[in-house]
Design a binder for these strands. Sequence first.
DNA 1: AATGCAAACTAAATCGTTAAAGTAATAGTT
DNA 2: AACTATTACTTTAACGATTTAGTTTGCATT
Lengths: 338, 338
Amino acid sequence: MGKVTLKDLAKELGVSTTLISRVLNAPRREDGTPDCDIGKDTAMKVLELAQRLNYKPSRIAAGLRSGKRYLLGVITPDISNYAFSEAGRYIEELAHNDGYSVMFGSSAESPKRMEELLDIFAGHEVDGIIVTPCAGSEEILRKIVRQNIPLVLINRDVPALDGVGRVFLDNIGSMRQVVEHLVKGGYRKIEMISENMDVLSLRDRENSYRETMRSFGLEPYIYMVDSDTQETQTRDAVLEAARKGTEALITPRIRLSLNSLKAIMDAGLSIPEDMALFCHDESPAWTTHSPSISYVSQCSDQVGTEAYRMLRRMMGGSPGEQILIAPKLFFGDSTRRK
Amino acid sequence: MGKVTLKDLAKELGVSTTLISRVLNAPRREDGTPDCDIGKDTAMKVLELAQRLNYKPSRIAAGLRSGKRYLLGVITPDISNYAFSEAGRYIEELAHNDGYSVMFGSSAESPKRMEELLDIFAGHEVDGIIVTPCAGSEEILRKIVRQNIPLVLINRDVPALDGVGRVFLDNIGSMRQVVEHLVKGGYRKIEMISENMDVLSLRDRENSYRETMRSFGLEPYIYMVDSDTQETQTRDAVLEAARKGTEALITPRIRLSLNSLKAIMDAGLSIPEDMALFCHDESPAWTTHSPSISYVSQCSDQVGTEAYRMLRRMMGGSPGEQILIAPKLFFGDSTRRK
DNA sequence: AATGCAAACTAAATCGTTAAAGTAATAGTT
DNA sequence: AACTATTACTTTAACGATTTAGTTTGCATT
């Protein structure tokens, strides 16, 4: 009981494979009959037989000949991170509605893995790729561009890369609003915990924090922690901040946020009285937390949607553009006015 | 600058495409030379040229001829749900290490969408599929089995389906432990909020709750809410439970958990004094919540890993088996001893 | 009755690779 | 010197679809 092929259908009806292919690929007229130069009777017989034998065209064979793959690739550092999986969900949904399938890969922040994934996607001759770059992936991405595969960057930028589409959250604007909100709320000693990670969106958030603080005449201070020893270092940073009388803490990534939150709780500090907390990342649990946590939404739905649309435009020959998504801030009790 | 093909390499070196293909696909010897019946000099020249021209074999063409696709399909109701994306991450990682790529799809609990996705995956002739079935997908899945595509069910069962692999959390055992823990903690009026959804894992959790309650001589009670009006109905259920003096609430799914938590908070009730809460699902935020939330881990890492391994075994011809993952419970402050 | 033309089909090439079978040249054996 | 084995390749035929370029048939037209 091997797969049913065009040849099987053709033999069964005593016609050529060409005819079958024509009928099956023809657009349908209003009355449901295929719009091609094949007689209605024959055409309907083909349709019926294909249905009866549960014929599914081999996309692999069709793709080889026609050059159309109907396949997209998406690479993020980690699909199990909410911001990425959320974007992935939107991309997959839109793609599916247009007849495209999506291959996903996790780079785990490793350029080597990213290269492997991209090579494989290129080998599958995907029609387009959406990537959240990781540190050190510039050259690898450039190779994709050189292969003329439409490429859209999301979440993080690689500035020196030409000919790609870009969809980012406005990290500079969002962080400015975060600091403004805290200052208006009466906070002065506002500090940040960030991560030693060569990623531009993080640098943008840090720089915007620093600049906005200075624009208010306040002194910025950032604790830097290493990605692999994050948990203990974050704990230390929180404790040090508490000793120094820091009034508000800003965390720019989800893991930092969760680790900081845990450290604050474990230290027996209460939020926002002892220390306010603003998370520049999203978790479905922030709003149900007690106190509710102020956060910047990553707008992953918009990022995903816009990235997909841009990719489709680029697949149609348009040049890549840059889209900045306006951040959405949720002001919860964790940064209640002093 | 079209794609580089075998033919290009062959022409450049004045040899046949077969030779190139042989060299490139040969396993490497210790000294790095390909282990095939091609002269070392020629072989090395091939390797070098392929490198220089950045040749990537067309997986599509190779797959068509060889019948090997190195492609897996994964369908879950929603990749952005943590339990699913976590499992997906493990599957993708293991698959990648074995040279397989993974296509993901979200069924959004719709059998129609599931069918479309499965048809597409079948059209891509994936080597195997891992699915979290949604309600009403039995016949659709049966079609896949009939096409001899190895299929592994995760998270939810479809009992009447033969010839598939199964990897589930032991929902009956986990819920028994939840109730036992609450009873030992001094709780008596223990109720559950569940969802009108035709999914066996949910029924298992409900039945296990009921049976365990009765085994303690306690009366079970389950509020049923509809999936689409879940938020308001959950709120109502929580308020009613509070009126009735319910001491502990069990929620079997993440959205129900979040909605219940929110309703409890909004009602100004304190956990666990006014009402204890045990969530039979996972969120990265439970442990950092205050109070920390007791939960049953979905063990998505294990589910993903075991599902992948079973799929690989089935692709090798082994029959499908069933694996029950032992649940891991986290006892937090939300169900502290009375 | 010859011509043109549309309608309804078919044959054969092709996409880029792999697999099976074959060949030519060299070396080793008796 | 004749025979066998081994090495290092090549030729040809797939895989299952799509596409290009026909071919056949029937009917209307002149």
